[in-house]
Write a protein that binds this DNA or RNA. Structure first.
Length: 111
DNA sequence: GATATGACATGTT
DNA sequence: CAACATGCCATAT
């Protein structure tokens, strides 16, 4: 029987997200690639968006390739994410267009 | 099944 | 560095 949807892929992505250690950040594309599905960066974002609110997924550790939050600055989630990242020890640089995450020191998997 | 949208990535201008 | 354009794929209508 055929699956209604690729729950395996979704689960793989969720597993990858849950595998991000504290004090580290990762980009959507990297997560998708680690999950075994390169190019599905959008899928990762879609999952997080549709995730239940009381989720154990550290979505705040997920950022885009620009090194910034995926939400518009000033939004609740944006502030919450930045607060959490700083609390985890992640370096965030204040920039004119918003706070930029120093992934050079917090990127995962670093090695 | 086609069209539109999306918590993206990458390249070019 | 910023804006624009293109690719990639799943979900919603």
């Amino acid at each position: 029987m055929k699956s209604k949807s690729n729950n395996e892929t979704r689960d793989a992505i969720l597993q990858t997200l849950a595998s991000i250690p504290e004090g580290r950040v990762c980009t959507y594309g990297t997560i998708a690639r680690l999950a075994g599905s390169p190019g599905q960066a959008r899928y990762v974002g879609y999952i997080l968006k549709t995730l239940p609110h009381p989720t154990s997924i550290p979505w705040h550790r997920v950022i885009n390739s620009k090194g910034k939050s995926a939400f518009p600055p000033g939004s609740d989630k944006y502030s919450m994410q930045m607060t959490r990242l700083k609390q985890e020890g992640i370096v965030v640089v204040d920039s004119a267009s918003g706070e930029t995450i120093e992934m050079s020191t917090c990127f995962w998997p670093d090695s």
